[in-house]
Amino acid sequence: MSVMSAAEQEQAPPPPPSTRSWSRAREDIVEGFKQRELWGHLGWQDIKQRYRRSVIGPLWITLSMAITAIGLGLLYSQLFQATIPTFLPYITVGFIVWNFINGCITEGTDTFIRNEGLIKHLPAPLTVYALRTVWRLTLMFAHNLLVYVVILVIFWGSLTTSDYTITDGGNPQPGIGFGILLAIPAFVLLAVNGGWVAILFGIISTRYRDIPQVINSLISLLFFMTPIVWTTDILTQRLPGSGDSDWKVLIAELNPLYHYVQLLRAPLIGNEQSWHHWAVVGGFTVVGWGLAFVAMRNYRSRVSYWV
């Protein structure tokens, strides 16, 4: 009887692989990056669909950014008694970078919810839909860079002057030089972070539909708490208190989004480069992708049911 039992066990089919598998999660992420033609096409179609039948099409992205940045730049330059040739580029680039970060967070929560139809009918890795979101935001970022180019041409003399200041009495900045090339790896690092944000927040929001509402409610507060329309110089100059002012700068330093914004803004406007911005963003990149990998391992197979 034991012989028959052994024979039956040899002929029995192997047990089905567990849906919670590290290998499946890794395969989903790797295959998602490989299918760049798919998520590249889908992201481009999103832009075309949004501005279909529009006269100037995607240029509305650029025009909207220009109006917002210039309007608030002129306003806050007067409130903070700052010089327009250096403060306006600071705010403009801050808005451009923030718009990308904000999109990765808010649209990342809707990544899988928005692609419900494709997820249920298209046999593609879930990572494809996260990369679709990041690619769409990258195209919008490229359109917004036209505003930066115009601002750069207008205020080139001020931004290339050595030891220029953003606000009166602020820290001197080296000015635009070869360090502007650091903007390329800085944006790549931001886009890589956008990938894990879309995956992790997308999975959580698919399960708990209140999460997108919570994030949308907090994002405005995070905007004003991040040095975009104000500088860290203002903290040390305007806040009351005597003695060491390092604690005032911690108001900005303890905000992770500040490091993300400054990582890309600093080289674009010739601000002083700081290694600790790269260290903070690099640390969040490793931790973020680790959490996204765990989420993919545990809940990848359930997303199609949750949507």
Rank of each mutant, 00 (worst) to 15 (best):
V30Q: 12
R36A: 12
V249C: 04
S2W: 12
N193W: 06
L145A: 05
P256V: 04
N216Y: 09
F178L: 15
Q45H: 12
N193M: 08
I151W: 01
V303N: 05
R36I: 08
V3S: 14
V249K: 15
V307Y: 02
F80D: 13
I166M: 09
L42V: 01
I56N: 06
T285L: 05
T133F: 00
V188K: 05
A252S: 13
M296I: 04
G117M: 13
S158Q: 12
F155W: 12
S162R: 13
M140I: 07
R52Y: 04
E116Y: 08
S220V: 09
H143F: 13
P267Q: 00
L263D: 00
L221Y: 10
W196R: 08
Y208I: 11
V55P: 00
S205D: 02
Y258S: 15
V307R: 06
L218Y: 09
T161C: 06
Q262F: 00
T92Y: 05
Y164A: 01
H276C: 04
F80Q: 13
Y299S: 14
N144T: 08
E253L: 05
E272P: 06
Y305E: 15
L139C: 08
T111G: 03
G283F: 10
Y299G: 10
C104H: 06
R114T: 08
L291I: 01
I215W: 09
I96N: 00
F178I: 14
P123V: 05
E10Y: 13
L88Q: 03
T206Y: 07
K248N: 05
V294Q: 13
G157E: 02
I166Y: 08
Q45D: 13
V150T: 10
Y208E: 12
P16H: 08
R50Y: 14
L257N: 00
H259E: 11
T111Q: 09
L182R: 02
H277D: 10
A66F: 00
W196P: 00
Q273P: 06
P58C: 02
P267R: 02
S217K: 09
F223D: 04
G241M: 12
L74F: 15
W60I: 04
Q45G: 11
W306K: 11
V188G: 11
W44Q: 01
A69V: 03
W247I: 03
N193Y: 04
V3I: 14
I101G: 01
I180S: 00
T206D: 14
N193K: 11
G170I: 09
M1A: 14
G108K: 06
G94W: 09
E272K: 13
Y148D: 01
Q35A: 11
I204F: 07
A295K: 02
M140H: 04
E27S: 13
Q11T: 14
W275C: 02
H259F: 02
F87T: 05
D233Q: 10
V303W: 01
T236L: 10
Q11F: 15
G94M: 07
R26F: 13
L291T: 00
L159H: 03
M4Q: 15
R36S: 10
M4A: 15
A198D: 02
F80I: 13
V303D: 02
Y129V: 03
N271C: 11
L222K: 09
A6Q: 14
G175I: 00
L137K: 05
V134E: 01
G108I: 03
V134I: 15
T127R: 10
M225T: 06
A295E: 03
L239P: 03
R20M: 11
V214S: 12
V294E: 12
P89T: 06
